[in-house]
Design a protein around this nucleic acid. Structure first.
Length: 232
DNA sequence: GCGACAG
DNA sequence: ATCTTGTCGC
């Protein structure tokens, strides 16, 4: 079934064109007691996806799920979800409780076809999702208008369209590129990202997921290195 | 044709 | 993203 995660660039762009119309930009429709963080790490031939669930507002980890699959797609700017998506969805399938809100390491609608990984995954999982990227993929903004204090922000635009917000999550750090993924709007995307930022540049859900993905990646690398030789 | 380009 | 130890700075 599906067809939502093909393995070739042409079909992938066609899928994005078909799914973009289903993304809903609206205020969060539920109270948030659990926030999820998603990120991936790569080995030579495998993608390791991690989903961590944090209780809010404590921001303490209450659950974690991981999945490692063969890398299904090359890295192509604009098609990241087809590379990390399969492993991410598998990890979610192993999760016991779906969080109220999901934070992804990447763009939401701040994407060429308005379907970054946060929008794509949020749509397939039918959950509110936010894209929290460390750098820009598309869009323009006034760097001069961005202050250096935590909370300072400037809109990320593309023509007359607002894609998201360039946000300073901590004092004196490079800004984050926050954009709504699905079932969320720019205002809530920014306020929830800030609500999850404690003492680092990245919000806790995404920061912890990144750290956990790295740990699992190293463990898998060891298992592989110590595995018995196998002839074909 | 020449740059830009999430992770 | 990944290859990599210590090190300079707030």
């Amino acid at each position: 079934m599906d067809g939502a995660l093909p393995d070739d660039p042409e079909t992938a762009r066609a899928v994005q064109g078909r799914l973009r119309g289903q993304v809903r930009l609206e205020p969060l429709d539920r109270p948030v007691s659990r926030v999820g963080g998603v990120d991936s790490a790569f080995l030579t031939d495998r993608v390791v996806a991690v989903v961590v669930v944090l209780r809010y507002p404590e921001l303490e980890v209450v659950e974690e799920a991981i999945a490692a699959l063969p890398i299904p797609f090359p890295y192509v700017p604009g098609l990241l979800s087809f590379r990390e998506g399969p492993a991410i969805l598998e990890a979610f399938q192993r999760l016991h409780t779906l969080p109220d809100l999901l934070l992804f390491d990447g763009q939401g609608i701040a994407h060429p076809r308005r379907l970054g990984i946060a929008s794509h995954m949020g749509l397939l999982l039918d959950r509110p999702a936010v894209g929290v990227a460390k750098s820009r993929l598309v869009g323009t903004y006034d760097a001069v208008g961005l202050g250096v204090e935590k909370g300072d922000r400037v809109p990320l635009m593309d023509g007359g369209e607002t894609l998201g917000t360039v946000l300073r999550s901590r004092r004196n750090v490079r800004p984050l590129f926050v954009s709504p993924g699905h079932r969320c709007n720019v205002t809530d995307a920014v306020s929830w990202t800030l609500a999850c930022c404690t003492r680092y540049r990245l919000p806790e859900p995404t920061r912890i997921a990144d750290k956990r993905a790295d740990v699992h990646k190293r463990q898998l690398r060891e298992r592989t290195d110590s595995a018995p030789e196998q002839e074909g």
